[in-house]
Design a protein around this nucleic acid. Structure first.
Length: 465
RNA sequence: UGCCCGGUAGCUCAGUGGCAGAGCAGGUGACUGUUAAUCACUUGGUCGUAGGUUCGACCCCUACCCGGGCAGCCA
């Protein structure tokens, strides 16, 4: 007999004489003559109720069917006599596959997220984390579907990179050298030519530069992979290892880029609303009461757009006193971004055209501006509750202007010869952005800490499991 | 990295310079359909660690460790 998933059993349209369930016991309630078991197999949020009559030959083992135990049940799927569920299974035989004794940490009651983080190997068996990781799986699929439907090609950019100045933060060093006894050069430095790659290498902080290469060949591309930042960031929205989606589009400017970002974010929300309805309702009930109304509101109205210069004017006119002063040329701080998206616009907002001095070298210089107010075609998509969820830009496609930008940022052209070549041979306007997958999941689920939307979080001082 | 809050039973927490507490979980029993079942009884403690103050410290002080929040950095 083949296994029936709980999800399929609960969705049955007719009784079944004989089904096989396999899963984990969530709870057991004993009466004198029978026991109720709730079995969950992760296929969906809900479990299915199983009734084991005391007359069953296996019934002597029922005491081993504790919360957490793995169990196999054969029986009939019948309409439930009780309230609360349409179907239930009358057991004809059951087998304990894996016992769980009283030390099983997941109780039949609510646990704090902090406690569950410490038992990350068991937390996917909880309602909340089961739901989070089902949504994560679905949205990972939706990312590919969105881009594939629009004729984007998926590019697997390298995890290990030798360029150490991509401008997106501190990097993790990759080496096979013996750190206790590294090979040394004559002048007393570590001899990196003896390292595995013959040079210093790091974990990637972005696939963008390599993505640009492929956009200049396949036109529309995206990457979706792990990204590593060695920043000592201790906040609810930073992880040292996270997943990022980076589309790169040839023949596209900053406005097309903002359009794509908005369409993408809305697509993912809509996909979760459609395909993860039960899980989202669970979040709405237990995590964030306003979740569903907020998601629907976001789907309905266009995202606001405002230039950095307009944003600064809005902040100056707000009458607020800021911890970090607002002035043209300074970066927008979290308090400013929160004000814009949560109070002023009360919806997602894309801020674009930032001062050149505070942005990366590869962002396209805007024409016709004064040196004092020189901007680049950068954009950040801010959402309520999280802040920046997307950062991107139109890239500088003009060789001379790009070289000027590199000089401004004190970058060595030799290290970027291949990047400059893209501007020498068939250069085209192009643009792209990076979406933080975990931040998107936080927004869609309402879960407030990035450590709770990634299976095994890597943060400063923590790399367990 | 800085500032702030916390660490007491398996979990969530209360507590007070003078005998270590509750709810849930676990155990035993009861219960003819329960559904975070219910009812009765019950086991369970290095009060984060190390010093210090004190007749006496879970409580006050210092350092450290761990967790969380916020900020910076960013996605």
């Amino acid at each position: 007999m083949s296994r029936t998933l709980v999800k399929a059993a609960l969705a049955a349209t007719a009784p079944a004489d004989s089904i096989l369930l396999q899963g984990w016991v969530r709870t057991r309630r004993d009466a004198k003559a029978f026991s109720f078991l709730e079995i969950n197999d992760g296929s969906c949020l809900k479990g299915i109720q199983v009734i084991a009559d005391a007359g069953l030959p296996d019934y002597v083992h029922i005491q081993k069917a504790n919360t957490g135990a793995a169990i196999e049940v054969r029986g009939k799927l019948v309409p439930s006599q009780g309230q609360g569920q349409q179907w239930e299974v009358v057991a004809e035989s059951f087998k304990i596959l894996g016992e769980a004794d009283a030390t099983y940490p997941l109780q039949k009651k609510g646990h704090t997220l902090e406690f569950l983080r410490e038992i990350a190997h068991l937390r996917p068996r909880s309602n909340l984390f089961g739901a989070v990781f089902r949504v994560r799986s679905r949205l990972a699929f939706a990312v590919h579907q969105f881009f594939q439907d629009r004729h984007f090609h998926c590019v697997h950019t390298p995890i290990i990179t030798a360029s150490d100045a991509e401008g997106a933060g501190d990097m993790f060093r990759v080496t096979t050298l013996d750190l206790a006894h590294p090979p040394m050069t004559e002048d007393g430095a570590v001899d990196v030519t003896k390292d595995f790659f013959g040079k210093k290498t790091f974990l990637t902080v972005s696939g963008q530069l390599e993505g640009e290469i492929f956009a200049h060949a396949l036109s529309n591309i995206y990457t979706f992979g792990p990204t590593f930042r060695a920043e000592n960031s201790n906040t609810s929205r930073h992880a040292a290892e996270f997943w990022m989606i980076e589309p790169e589009v040839a023949f596209c400017d900053i406005h097309g880029n903002m359009d794509l970002a908005e369409e993408f974010v809305k697509y993912l929300i809509r996909d979760a609303r459609t395909h993860c309805a039960a899980d989202l309702e669970f979040f709405s009930k237990f995590v964030d009461k306003d979740l569903l109304t907020r998601l629907d509101f976001v789907l309905e109205r266009p995202f606001q757009r405002c230039s950095y210069t307009e944003a600064v004017a809005i902040l100056e006119k707000s009458g607020r006193t800021w911890e970090h002063p607002v002035s043209w040329g300074a970066n927008l701080q979290a308090e400013h971004e929160r004000y814009l998206t949560e109070e002023h616009f009360k919806c997602p907002v894309t801020v674009y055209n930032y001062p050149r001095a505070i942005k990366a070298f590869y962002m396209r210089k805007n024409d016709g501006e004064t040196p004092e107010r020189q901007t680049v075609a950068a954009m950040d998509l801010l959402v309520p509750g999280i802040g920046e969820i997307i950062g991107g830009s139109q890239r500088e496609e003009r060789l001379d202007v790009l070289r000027e930008g590199m000089a401004l940022h004190h970058l060595d052209e030799k290290a970027y010869s291949w990047y400059l070549d893209l501007r020498r041979y068939g250069s085209v306007p192009h643009a792209g952005f990076g979406l933080g997958f975990e931040r998107m999941l936080m927004f869609v689920t309402g879960v407030g800490n990035i450590r709770d939307v990634i299976p095994f979080a890597r943060t400063p001082g923590t790399a367990d499991f």
